[in-house]
Simulated assay, not measured.
Amino acid sequence: MKNRTTLIITCTTVFLAQLGMSIYLPALPDIARDLGADASRVSWGLSVYLIGMALPMLLWGSVSQRLGRKPVLLAALGLYGLSNLALPLGTTVEAFLTLRLIQGIGASGISVMARVLIRDSFSGDLLAKALSWISIAFVIALGIGQYLGSLIQVAFGWEAIFYGLGAVSLAMAVAVSRVGFPVLTESSHGQSAWRVYGRILRYRGFLLPALAGGLGYGVIVAFNTAAPLILQESFHWSAIEYGLLGWPISAAYLFGALAVNAFVLRTGQRRLMSWGIALVLGGSATMLLGSVALSSVALLFWLPYCFAVFGQSLNYPISLSLANEGSPVAGAYAMALSGFLHQLMASAIGAMASLLLSQQAWPLAALCTLLAVAAMLCVRFMPPRVA
C-alpha cells in the first residue's frame, strides 16, 4: 500500500471513531429526557466510551501482530458500526451506557490500527509529521462533530446521529475490505505479548512522552465532559450555540497540527512539544483565573481553552512519535500501549470531571491546570533523545 493511501484510510477511520466522542454532545439533554434519566448520568456516556477504548487496546495490538492489520481493522469497524445502529434502540440509561461501552471497544481497534499503519509506513521526524495528519482528522471530528450533531438533532432527532454514524462506518468497512495491506514480518523473540508490554513500560524513553500526551489529551476530555452542562445551564447557551463552539476549537487544533506538519523537521520534536505543553498550561491557568475572577464572562472560559487545544495539537503527535522511538520493541506493541495509556488516563480523567460536574467553571479549570502541570513535569524529565 502506498503511503498516501495509508494516510487516507487512517485519517478517515480515525475521523469516524472520534465522531463517537463528540457528535452526540449537543443532544445530551434531549437524550436524558427521552431516557427518563438525569443529565449527569447520561454524561457518563463519554467516560464509558473512553473506558471501552482503553481496555482492549493492548489486545488489538497483539492480535494485529498475529493476524495482520486488515482483519483487525475490519472487525473494529464492524463492531463500531453495528453498536451505533443499535444504540438508539435502547430505552434505559443502562442500555445506553452499555452500548456506548461496545461502541468504544470498536473505536479502540480503529484507533490502534490507524496508528500502527502509520508506524508501519513512516519513522523518525516523518512519523511525527504523518501522525499530525491523524491529529487533523481527530480535531475535525471533535469540532465539526459537535456542530454536525446539533444540526442532525434539530432536523431529525438525536437517534439519527447514531444511525448515520453506524451506516457510514459499515460502508467504510466495505471500502477497506477492497484495499490490499502489506504483510509485515515482525517478531517479539517468542515472548508473550504481556511480557513485551511490561518490558516497554520500564523504559522512561517510552513512558514519559506517552504520559505527557495522555495528560494533555485529558484536558480535552475533561472539557468535553463538563462543558456542555456549564455552557448550556450556567451561560444559557442553546444546543446550536454549543455546537458552533466546535469551529474555533477545530481551528485551534487544525493550526497546531499543521504547524507540526510544517515545522517539525526544522524545529525538532522536543522543542515543539515543550512549546505545546506550555500553551496547554497557559490556556488552562487563564481559564481558571477567568472562571474565578469573572465567572459570568463565557469568553474567558472557552477562548483560553482554544489556546490549550492549540498546544495539545503540537504535543500529541510528537508524544506518540517519541514514545515509539523510545520503545525497546518494534512493531505494533508500542503504538498499542501508548494508545492504551492515553485512553485509560482519559477515562479516569473523564470520570473525575463527571464527579466534579457543576454549573460553575472553576472546578473544571482547576483540573485542567493540574493536568497541564503534570504534563510539563513529564517533558522536563524525559531522557535525552538517542540518535
Rank of each mutant, 00 (worst) to 15 (best):
Cys368Met: 15
Leu244Ile: 12
Ala353Arg: 00
Asp120Trp: 06
Leu371Tyr: 00
Gly246Tyr: 00
Met57Gly: 04
Leu289Glu: 03
Leu89Ser: 13
Ile152Gln: 05
Ser64Glu: 06
Leu356Trp: 07
Glu159Asp: 14
Ala278Cys: 12
Leu184Pro: 02
Ala366Lys: 07
Gly282Lys: 01
Ile230Ala: 04
Gly45Glu: 11
Leu55Trp: 03
Ala39Thr: 14
Leu201Gln: 09
Gly256Met: 10
Ala27Phe: 05
Val93Pro: 08
Leu99Gly: 02
Met376Cys: 13
Glu241Gln: 14
Leu82Trp: 02
Gly311Ile: 06
Asp38Pro: 00
Val174Ile: 15
Leu357Pro: 02
Gly104Lys: 03
Leu165Met: 10
Val264Ile: 13
Leu170Asp: 03
Leu294Cys: 04
Leu355Glu: 11
Cys11Trp: 00
Ala175Leu: 12
Leu99Ser: 01
Leu55Ser: 06
Cys368Ser: 08
Ala387Phe: 09
Leu201Ala: 09
Ser22Lys: 06
Ala114Trp: 06
Leu142Thr: 15
Met53Ala: 00
Leu87Arg: 04
Leu322Met: 12
Ala114Asp: 08
Tyr305Val: 13
Leu184Tyr: 12
Ala257His: 08
Gly104Trp: 03
Val179Phe: 10
Asp34Lys: 03
Met172Ile: 11
Leu127Ala: 07
Ser250Cys: 15
Glu186Ala: 06
Phe15Trp: 05
Ser132Leu: 06
Phe255Gly: 08
Cys306Ile: 04
Ala348Leu: 15
Gly81Lys: 01
Gly190Lys: 05
Leu294Thr: 08
Leu320Asn: 08
Ser234Phe: 09
Gly180Ala: 13
Asp34Ser: 09
Ser296Asn: 13
Phe301Asn: 02
Ile134Ser: 03
Gly282Gln: 05
Cys11Gly: 07
Ala239Ile: 09
Ala346Glu: 03
Thr267Pro: 00
Trp302Val: 15
Gly216Leu: 04
Ala293Met: 10
Val379Lys: 08
Pro304Asp: 08
Ala259Gly: 12
Ser250Ala: 15
Tyr203Asp: 14
Ser296Ile: 08
Leu16Met: 07
Leu288Trp: 05
Phe263Gln: 10
Ala171Gln: 12
Pro383Ser: 02
Arg195Thr: 11
Leu357Asp: 02
Phe206Arg: 02
Met172Ser: 10
Ala285Gly: 01
Phe122Pro: 02
Ile144Thr: 14
Ile161Val: 12
Asn324Thr: 15
Ile51Phe: 15
Arg4Asn: 10
Val292Ser: 07
Leu7Asp: 03
Val48Lys: 05
Val297Phe: 14
Leu341Ile: 15
Ala37Val: 09
Ala262Gly: 05
Thr6Cys: 12
Gln153Cys: 11
Ala293His: 09
Ala141Thr: 05
Ala226Trp: 04
Val116Thr: 14
Ala278Arg: 13
Ser132Pro: 00
Ala226Tyr: 01
Ala27Tyr: 07
Leu371Asn: 01
Leu337Tyr: 03
Val93Trp: 03
